[in-house]
Design a protein around this nucleic acid. Sequence first.
DNA 1: CGGTATCCATAGGGATACTG
DNA 2: CAGTATCCCTATGGATACCG
Lengths: 128, 128
Amino acid sequence: MTAEDGDPMTVLARRDDTTCRVRDVLDRVGSKWSLTVINELGPGKRRFTEIKNSVPGISQRMLTETLRGLERDGLIERTVHPVVPPRVEYELTTLGRTLLDTVRGLLDWALDHIDDIDKAREAYDDRS
Amino acid sequence: MTAEDGDPMTVLARRDDTTCRVRDVLDRVGSKWSLTVINELGPGKRRFTEIKNSVPGISQRMLTETLRGLERDGLIERTVHPVVPPRVEYELTTLGRTLLDTVRGLLDWALDHIDDIDKAREAYDDRS
DNA sequence: CGGTATCCATAGGGATACTG
DNA sequence: CAGTATCCCTATGGATACCG
């Protein structure tokens, strides 16, 4: 998996234009709410307000922007049902689904190591 | 928030205080340069300037801040060699190493799907 | 070399009000 | 319900200069 044959080249440094494009992707995926929202859509279709309620702390504005960004990147699909009151549903696309496992990996890692990190932070802050 | 039965509760919505702490971790890990830097330290010890050179676009200030944050979280260790000129080396801790695979997963995903995403963006922008 | 310190512009993002 | 539209403040982060 690694290119550890004495070559310190990494996936991100391989070529500069590729690097920048990877950065674009990371900026989207790593943006404040994206991972959370993608994970939230894992189980299936969700409505706007459902998502909003299950992601504590997100504002209406940020949810809209996050969803638009993910839609633009082809990771989720937005379906508007022409009824009143409006019903809008979001679901992962095939592409989005390929990201789901990775996202879960990161989220699970975070959950598993929160305590370690908290301790490390305390230790660090005490030292200084 | 309500916890209905049959509700698709997710890892992030499980409990509110846990949610917030996961957010903290995600904010660190998902911050602009962290994933890249962690990945960069995968192969082993690196010096400050080495890292800076292999992460195109990062400023000295941002690299310092990113490294400090990761150090505070116990993900990397900083070693200062008392020589002139100074020599400072960074390497992943055991904890940091547990994150490496996940990080690589995300980076690899980004690399693998850049083209898909670019196409999706174009298609989206054309439509609107 | 490996940082701080400072200044400063801009994007991120909250709060609130309004709408089809 | 599912958004826009504003306003406005703050954190992020680039550029530059200096330092042990």
